[in-house]
Simulated scan of single mutants.
Amino acid sequence: MVRVNNCCGCCDLKSGTIAVSIVYLVLAIVNMALGIAGVVGTKGVATYVGVSIDAIMLILCILLIIGACMDNPDLCMVWVVGAIVWSVLTTIIAVVISTVFAANIAEHRGLDPDLPMPTGAPATAGVAAGLILGLGVVWAFVALKVCLVIYSAIVVYSHAQNLREGGGSPPPYNQFEGAKAI
C-alpha cells in the first residue's frame, strides 16, 4: 500500500491520524443524528442500515483516537480495515440508489415497455432531467467521500507502519528548512 511521510503536506502522521479520527467521529455523530431524526435518507430499513454503519464508524473512530494517542498500530489498522469496508458499503448503497433513480428516469421518459406512454411530455422530460442531475450529484458526492476516506486510510496506514517499524512519527517536513530536528 502507498505510504506518505506527512498529512496534507503540513503536519506529522500522528497529528494527521488524530485529526482524521476527530473529523470522521464528528461526521459519524452528525450522520447518526440526522438518520435518527429522519432528515436524511428514506424511512425503514435504509435508515437503520445507515445509522448502524455510522455507529460502527463512530466506534472505529474512538478506537483510532485511542490507538493514535497510545501509539498502538493494531488499533490504527482496525480503523483502516473498517474504512475500506465503509467505502465498499457506501459504494454499494450508491449503486442501489442509482438503480432506483434509473428506474424513475425510465418511467418518466416512457422507456419501460410495460408502462403506457406518459402524458405531458415536457413536464415528464423535466422530471427525467432532474433525476439525471440528481444521479450525477449522488455519484459526485460518493466519489468525493470515497476519495477522502482512501487518503485518510493511507495516512493512518502510514502512521501504523511507522509505529510497527519502531520509528514512531518522523519529524514534519518543512519545505524551506528540510527535516526538523526533534
Rank of each mutant, 00 (worst) to 15 (best):
M1G: 13
M1F: 11
V4M: 11
N6D: 13
C8F: 13
K14H: 10
S15W: 04
S15E: 08
T17W: 01
T17S: 14
I18C: 08
I22A: 13
L25N: 03
V26D: 00
A33I: 05
G38Q: 08
G41K: 04
K43F: 14
G44R: 04
G44L: 11
V45N: 06
A46D: 07
T47C: 09
Y48E: 07
Y48T: 05
S52N: 05
L60N: 04
L60C: 06
L64S: 09
G67I: 00
M70A: 14
M70G: 04
N72D: 13
L75Y: 14
C76L: 07
W79P: 00
V80Q: 06
V80E: 05
I84D: 11
V85K: 01
L89A: 15
L89G: 12
T90Q: 14
T91G: 13
I92H: 06
V95C: 15
I97E: 15
V100T: 14
A103K: 03
I105W: 13
A106D: 11
E107N: 06
P113H: 07
L115E: 14
P118Y: 08
P118C: 09
T119I: 10
G120R: 02
P122D: 12
A125T: 09
A125I: 10
G130M: 12
I132C: 07
I132Y: 04
L135F: 12
W139V: 01
F141V: 06
K145Q: 12
V146H: 02
S152K: 01
S152E: 07
I154K: 03
S158C: 12
H159K: 04
Q161Y: 09
R164H: 05
R164N: 09
G166H: 05
G168I: 03
G168F: 06
G168D: 08
P171C: 07
Y173H: 15
N174Y: 15
Q175E: 11
E177A: 15
K180A: 13
A181D: 08
A181T: 09
